[in-house]
């Protein structure tokens, strides 16, 4: 994540790279580019606090749904990271609304990438239905990228469709690297510590 003080928004901008998550109750912007990854913006309308995550569900789910499908475990984990950021700032998921973006594919995508995009859309839709968190805005799929600015203090999202990939080649490389890492490490598990 990059923190930028001097930018044309006139406010502090936190720029998220693929895999990053961040929440704030300050009058700032959280920005990113949604390519093939999912971008979720959560807003707690009581606490006036918001958070964003840019992540991918690395693989294709079978038909068992969000509770049993092993690959969705990674999606749930990523949402837990963002939820933890929000709860630490006093938020409660009963007061949250979601805006979801991304899971696009480029014109050069192969069939696996398109399946992955469908899979990410399936995950995020099922997740919010199960959590009973309303989705206020959904802008998913398509063969383009989206530049997003989120105002965590009021929940507003500004979106620009990006047709020219050349200008964002560095970000695209980072996204590719992140997605490959996630696919490689998708069976990784956390530590178990026993105290007595």
């Amino acid at each position: 994540m990059l923190r930028s003080q001097n930018n044309r928004t006139g406010k502090v901008l936190y720029l998220l790279y693929p895999g990053d998550h961040f929440a704030s109750n300050e009058d700032c912007y959280i920005g990113t580019i949604a390519g093939s990854c999912l971008v979720v913006c959560l807003f707690d309308y009581i606490k006036k606090t918001g958070g964003m995550i840019n992540f991918v569900v690395p693989g294709t789910a079978v038909t068992e749904g969000i509770l049993k499908d092993d690959i969705f475990r990674i999606g749930i984990l990523n949402m837990e990271y963002l939820m933890a950021d929000m709860v630490k700032l006093g938020c409660d998921r009963h007061h949250m609304k979601a805006k979801i973006f991304g899971a696009g594919y480029s014109v050069n995508s192969n069939s696996n990438q398109i399946t992955s995009s469908d899979n990410n859309i399936k995950f995020v839709t099922e997740y919010f239905a199960f959590e009973k968190i309303p989705i206020e805005k959904k802008d998913l799929g398509g063969n383009f990228r989206r530049k997003l600015y989120f105002s965590p203090a009021d929940g507003t999202v500004y979106r620009k469709i990006l047709q020219n990939n050349e200008d964002f080649s560095e970000f695209i490389s980072l996204e590719k690297e992140y997605v490959e890492d996630e696919f490689r490490n998708r069976n990784k598990t956390g530590k178990i510590l026993l105290f007595d």
Partner: peptide
């Protein structure tokens, strides 16, 4: 606490 499991975890663990 008696133990600490860091997510993600496998159901078997």
């Amino acid at each position: 606490a008696s133990g600490w499991i860091i997510k993600p975890f496998q159901a078997e663990d």
